[in-house]
Amino acid sequence: MADRPTEALHPMAEGLHLAPPEQVLSRALAAQQAALAAVGPALPQLAAAARIAAQTLRAGGKLAYAGAGSSGLMALADCLEMLGTFGIPAERTPMLFAGGAEALLKMTGGVEDDPALAAADLARADLGVGDVLIAVSASGTTPYTLAVAAGAAKAGAKVVGIANVPGSPLLQAADVPVLLETGAEIVAGSTRLGAATAQKVAMNLVSVLVGVELGHVHDGMMVNLVADNAKLRDRAARIVARVAGVDTGIARVALNRTRGAVKPAVLVARGASPESAGARLAAAGGILAKAMKS
């Protein structure tokens, strides 16, 4: 473990305990910024991961996420947003988190070493051919995450592995290996810092590209959101109004006619019936821009 880059001492860490508060923060921020730079070299792999994920979801498969500890939390944040931002049903994006919901309230290290938990979580997720798993581990050696990745691959699912240590087992086992070489942490071994920052940004990029590929992003707006609260209903109305070129009153009427679905509401606001809007979107593969041209 001492040989892992994430366990090494950071060059800016010497004397950190003696430094004034502003300098501690300045060094910690610089370390975070340096870690973020590690995402750039991984863009081709992230694009490949997004293409596989989008193809999987378009074909009706599942996009699963897996991880433990801080890496699992980063994966969970992205997993939850697939519904919140892009309207993809939660059952299509299962989360496999070491220790389950209880571990979210009180982080316990032992669960990440238990392959039996991985087997149980895999059984519940029911992954197989036509599915894809994004597995995240800073060290690339977390037993839980490796067991999930191995089980998913055995079942026929594709595996995207995201790790921060070169040559780690997770990267070796993945169909799409994504290395985020963030190196030493300002607090040695605390991968909730630089490693997790790079992981979160990397998954942000993947999910944004997935949303674009699926037609759920139009001019930077989330046109497949599920408007289930006042804030999102207001956002949906503003999106429909802007894309359709109408006022928000007409947009709200259109949304009522489509039961809150943004894409068909845009077409309804432009004069289509809800039935025609649905047919045009289906013919366009869910791409709003294509449906609008038709």
Rank of each mutant, 00 (worst) to 15 (best):
T6Q: 06
L9Y: 10
A19C: 04
E22C: 05
V24T: 11
V24H: 01
R27T: 10
A30D: 13
A38P: 01
A42T: 05
A49Y: 02
A50M: 04
A50C: 05
T56I: 13
G69D: 06
C79W: 09
E81D: 10
E81M: 06
L83A: 14
F86Y: 15
G87I: 12
R92I: 11
A98M: 03
G99M: 05
G99C: 11
A101W: 12
V111H: 14
V129G: 09
V129N: 05
G130A: 04
L133M: 01
A150T: 14
G151K: 11
V159A: 08
I162K: 10
A163I: 09
V165G: 00
A174Y: 09
L179C: 05
G183Q: 04
L193I: 12
K200W: 04
V206S: 00
V212L: 12
E213A: 15
A230Q: 05
K231C: 13
L232N: 01
L232D: 08
A236V: 01
A244E: 02
D247T: 05
V253H: 05
A254T: 08
N256V: 06
T258S: 08
K263R: 07
P264W: 09
V266A: 00
E275Q: 13
G278K: 02
L281D: 10
A282G: 07
A284T: 01
G285A: 00
G286S: 12
